[in-house]
């Protein structure tokens, strides 16, 4: 239950974004499912990776871009939709807000802490995506 509920919330949040980004029907469900599964990966890798969240985000991103590539092949549409929507629970939106909030309060130490943390999360997500998409590209070039 403690794994199921957060994934359900991630699913619902993604579903909301599907409406805003105009993804309809089965695509919306699959994108949101991707978001929920990625969050599950994030939660499950926690104990294995010693609760280092930057690494957890990396594995979630690897899973997610593999999911997006598979779905793009199966449904014959660009992977963009999956990469956008399903990433939303993972991306550090709140991190940027906290970082700029600390900056406005004049709290330099917090600004640097949250800022570096946010950047490293964004970096590990980006590396996760690039690893998979580069591999897929190389494979299709063979």
């Amino acid at each position: 239950m403690e794994l199921f509920l957060p994934c359900l919330y991630a699913f619902l949040a993604c579903l909301g974004f599907c409406v805003l980004f105009r993804i309809n029907g089965l695509g919306a469900v699959l994108c949101s499912l991707g978001g929920a599964l990625a969050w599950l990966v994030y939660l499950l890798t926690g104990p294995i990776m010693g609760n280092n969240d930057v690494i957890q985000y990396f594995w979630a991103a690897v899973f997610l871009s593999a999911y997006a590539e598979v779905m793009a092949r199966v449904r014959k549409c660009p992977a963009t939709g999956y990469l956008l929507i399903a990433f939303i629970p993972l991306v550090p939106g709140a991190g940027i807000y906290n970082m700029m909030d600390a900056a406005l309060r004049g709290n330099t130490q917090d600004f640097l802490n949250t800022g570096l943390h946010t950047l490293s999360i964004a970096g590990s997500l980006a590396v996760g995506v690039l690893v998979v998409s580069s591999l897929v590209r190389m494979y299709s070039m063979l």
Partner: peptide
């Protein structure tokens, strides 16, 4: 507040920024 600002928060933008730079 953190939940409510997620509708606008630039989380995707900062992830895509990293992706573009690395690519």
């Amino acid at each position: 507040i953190t939940g409510a600002i997620m509708a606008q928060a630039p989380g995707l933008v900062i992830t895509n920024f990293m992706r573009d730079i690395m690519a």
